[in-house]
């Protein structure tokens, strides 16, 4: 019997309801995409968590490295003018 390490890893994204975007839910092993989708259904939506599923081969994801954290993310830390907080919100405007 082959072990689960022989099967590639897949990342699972679940859309919890219409209008929201897919959110990363976790990962699983499966021999191919179709089975990955079904395993995702069984593992991540069995308590009505979703209305749509994506599975992506983990190897297809290029991730930022923790070593690059400083150059990637720190420069944004002291630039508060990038936040839209310097505007007066006109009275009566909803959903802002």
């Amino acid at each position: 019997m082959s072990s689960s390490t022989d099967w590639p890893l897949w990342e699972v994204f679940v859309r919890s309801r219409r209008g929201l975007s897919h959110t990363h839910a976790g990962s699983l092993h499966a021999p191919d995409a179709e089975m990955a989708l079904r395993n995702a259904r069984d593992l991540y939506t069995r308590r009505s968590e979703g209305v749509s599923l994506w599975v992506v081969p983990s190897t297809a994801i290029t991730a930022s490295s923790p070593d690059e954290k400083d150059s990637f993310f720190e420069p944004a830390g002291d630039k508060p003018y990038r936040h839209p907080t310097f505007y007066e919100i006109p009275e009566g405007v909803k959903h802002l």
Partner: peptide, 12 residues
Amino acid sequence: APVLEEEVALAN
């Protein structure tokens, strides 16, 4: 079950 994923599938 042979793999965890399949175990959950059968239990479902």
